[in-house]
Design a protein around this nucleic acid. Structure first.
Lengths: 218, 218
DNA sequence: CCGCATCCGGGGCGATACTG
DNA sequence: CAGTATCGCCCCGGATGCGG
């Protein structure tokens, strides 16, 4: 991106992350951790292949990602966030929160829907409210795919699959998102077709804690 | 901006604020309040006139700004943030913080430098640490222009000029910014040429409070 | 002078095809 | 699987013009 040439930390930040797709690439890497090129393509429907490569190269030069040899047997390599790149978590959290009012309308007919996006929203907004001693695993199933989020006070992890979670949320992405953002209560969403399995009490406890935290502290 | 067409609140947010210059326009309106077209041009060196109009129209359609008749005698009109637009304060705060590591190098030879940018940084990062009963007015003089920031627990205000503030910071933007971001102590910056006048003790108290708040809270 | 509108050149971006 | 190459378009930047 062309620099704004302004000695302002906001402008400087945008010089690096203001380019199209950059923050969404960070989103994918933050959600799913070290990822291969094709994994990123899956999570970024609509991106052109040349742009994905371009962005990854630039982000590597800017110190946001590193390209490493893949672990274990795979002969390929993976892209991974650096600490500097992970520092964008606060930016993504702010954007994710600000974007909430545009979500209740539901996905347009040609919008892509992927569960790790909802999972990351949960991780970004709920992780801060976790008790240090009681992590929570949450399965999110929107459409045919599903992921499991592990929420802890010290961070989070998201993995594809649906292995034994404490709670499972199954239904349309807007219902699941509505519950996670506090716009809908679990009871309301259930009435609208959301399926909740497992320890729903633990989920509502975290949601309540998050809401009071945001409502009380200015 | 072309939509990402992803049902993700981050992508939705970027559909609205991801266009070039949009967040910097928000920065200017957040810093200086209702502004005329030419005021915005002053604060956004490098923007083309057609782009500024384009962005303002789009932002108006998206509900970020409103165009009002100018108050008092002026026959013109002003642009003002809506509550939705002001909601981007958290996004700007996160970006401003993330951009700090790119500031100590100082402005490049053709970088623009304007005091309200430094003032907004101070407002965004320090306002949260203010005691409810003790607002602080801070004059910032970098180069020939100067502004006064009023920091309160409930918000902030920035005005051009230099009328009687509690504290005055005069010097290069990187020294002033270094102190405000906590990278330099007042003593260190003073040794490097920063001039501090007035109640520097009240400034250091707020800075200390901010640092401990960010250092302690996870 | 302020607040735009118009025009034009260049580059970023999007879609597809192709290759090691 | 992980990119490279190509092409067309539209966004962006810079300049100029113009009405109130």
């Amino acid at each position: 991106m062309r620099s704004y040439q302004q000695y302002c930390s906001v402008a400087r930040a945008l010089d690096v992350v203001g380019d199209r797709w950059v923050l969404l690439i960070v989103r994918e890497l933050l959600a799913l951790g070290p990822s291969r090129y094709s994994d990123l393509q899956r999570g970024l429907p609509g991106i052109a292949t040349n742009l994905l490569v371009d962005r990854l190269r630039t982000m590597e030069a800017d110190g946001l990602v590193v390209r490493r040899e893949a672990p274990a047997p795979a002969g390929s390599h993976v892209y991974e966030l650096t600490p500097r790149g992970r520092g964008l978590e606060d930016v993504l959290r702010a954007l994710a929160r600000w974007g909430v009012p545009s979500m209740p309308s539901g996905p347009a007919h040609d919008d892509a829907v992927q569960p790790q996006w909802t999972a990351l929203f949960a991780a970004l907004t709920l992780s801060r409210a976790m008790r240090p001693d009681a992590p929570l695993t949450l399965a999110i199933e929107t459409g045919s795919e599903s992921v499991v989020v592990t929420l802890g006070a010290d961070g989070f992890a998201i993995e594809r699959g649906s292995g034994g979670a404490d709670v499972t949320l199954r239904g349309s992405a807007s219902l699941v998102g509505g519950v996670l953002s506090g716009l809908l209560t679990v009871a309301e969403a259930t009435r609208s077709g959301l399926v909740v399995e497992g320890r729903s009490d633990r989920l509502t406890a975290v949601l309540d804690h998050t809401l009071t935290q945001n409502g009380a502290a200015p």
